[in-house]
Amino acid sequence: MNHHIVPLKIYFAIFAALMAGTALTVWAAFQDFGEFNTLVAVVIAVVKAALVVLFFMHVKYSDKLIWVFASAGFIWLIILFAFTLMDPMTRDWLPVGAPLPM
């Protein structure tokens, strides 16, 4: 089988980026970004996860089908989150028994 063999220096570069990301997320936790504290933490985590998926898990070098499958999990996760949280987020928009806004 002639699969793509990822050069070692890419693995080490990704490793360095992941360690830096860990340091960054700890540092960021002690800064006050106001409303954006959680967002910053999640964005850093998403970037780190993407690096792992693309390079350590070889998705960058895989065919389209693997891209689709790798994305599908995360898309469906967002469906689960978005459509569930839609309910608690909007519970007091239209209280039961109140007249509909016309």
Binding site: W76, I79, F83, M86, D87, P88, M89, T90, R91, D92, W93, L94, P95, V96
Partner: peptide
């Protein structure tokens, strides 16, 4: 089929807004 499950929750405390969407 993945976007419709809330129709089982119309009479729970699910928000009216979510109910309409579902």
């Amino acid at each position: 089929g993945f976007f419709v499950w809330g129709h089982h929750l119309f009479l729970s405390t699910q928000s009216v807004y979510a109910g309409m969407v579902f």
